[in-house]
Computed example of a mutant assay.
Amino acid sequence: MNRFPIWDSHIHLNQYPKEKIPYYLEKWENGGVEGIIAVATDLRSSYELLEWKQKYPDFIHIAMGHHPEQELPVEKDLLDLLALIQMESSKIVAIGEVGIIHYRQSELGVNDLNGYIELLKIFTETAKKLNVPIILHAVHDKTEIALQTLLEENMKKAHFHWFKSSKETTKKVIEAGYTVSFTPELTFRERDQMIAKQFPLTQILLETDGPWPLEGNFNGRIPEPIWIRESISTLAKLKKLTEEDIVYVLNQNISHLYLESI
């Protein structure tokens, strides 16, 4: 299967050791990775990804946004980020990573989600104006909140990364025609496998979310896009298709969602 090109649909490239990024990029490309969707988490990382995009324009495709698992941006930073997105719109393929806080909600003392919902609406409007998809961090019970926001805003193209939600909300995401992605934990996590069975293959992508650590067989190792081949093997078994068929559809999905607007 190494002759078939693969994509990592969600990776935090700038969070890898800076001095090792050229090594990793060469390794991944030599390993059959055709490209990556590198996502920002704030204004600073957006600038960093622009620098890497300039050096590797055909391999790195970037998204800009403000990750929800942190405090809301101050007004100046938000305005600067929105201005940067507008100025560099020809270099981005999506708005992201954005969404609704979940894991750090208690830690940051967030009792009212309205600020995060309003920020998501701003990013949704930006994505619509630029005619690019939006990349979402919205897990468990927050998926429903993000989903309803997208539907209210008439957002057509959305990608829920590292998807995990209830059966009821999963059904709604499928009906909305949105895309979801799974990390290599798909290879062993029953929850992910059950969700992947529910979704049509045309609404699925694969990712690493690297360098965020994974569990199971991947524990203690730095995630790399090449691992996605293991996810492809699992997905082929779940969908009762060949690995070649899986790769073909996944690449079509990437092209349709991210590359047609370039």
Rank of each mutant, 00 (worst) to 15 (best):
L78D: 02
N30W: 00
T208Q: 14
L201F: 09
K156A: 10
L25H: 08
P22M: 11
Q198E: 14
H137W: 15
P22R: 05
R189K: 11
L79T: 07
S165M: 07
Y103D: 11
R191V: 14
K156R: 13
L82M: 12
A236C: 08
W212D: 05
E125Y: 08
E88R: 15
S45G: 08
E152V: 07
L235W: 05
D192Q: 08
A236S: 15
E69F: 12
K20A: 03
R221G: 03
E71Q: 12
E175D: 13
N217D: 13
Q203K: 07
I62L: 13
T179G: 01
L43M: 06
P57Q: 07
V139M: 07
L78F: 11
F160D: 08
K197W: 06
L150M: 12
E153A: 12
L120G: 07
L205N: 05
L214V: 04
F123E: 09
L78G: 04
V33T: 13
M1K: 00
V139S: 04
L25S: 09
V39R: 03
K76D: 09
D80P: 06
L250T: 14
L84G: 10
V98P: 15
E97Q: 10
S255N: 13
S45R: 01
A40R: 02
E97L: 13
L49C: 11
Q193Y: 02
V180D: 02
L78Y: 03
V132L: 05
A83Q: 13
A138L: 06
E69Y: 13
S89V: 05
I95V: 10
S89L: 13
P68A: 06
D42S: 07
K172H: 10
T208Y: 15
E51T: 09
E34D: 11
G220A: 07
L82H: 13
S166I: 04
E215A: 08
Q86N: 15
Q252A: 03
N154W: 01
Q252E: 15
K129W: 02
G31K: 14
P17C: 09
E48T: 00
S255T: 08
Y24E: 09
I6H: 03
Q54E: 15
Q252V: 01
A158N: 13
L13A: 14
L108H: 10
I145E: 11
F188S: 12
I262A: 02
K237S: 10
P211N: 09
N154G: 06
L250K: 13
V139Q: 06
I135H: 01
T208I: 12
K172T: 04
I92C: 04
A40G: 11
Q86M: 11
E207M: 10
Q148E: 15
T149Y: 01
E260W: 00
N114L: 13
N217A: 14
I226N: 05
R191P: 00
V139E: 03
R229G: 02
H140T: 02
P133C: 12
F59S: 12
K157A: 00
A196N: 04
A63E: 00
K156G: 01
A127N: 02
I246K: 03
G35V: 00
A38E: 06
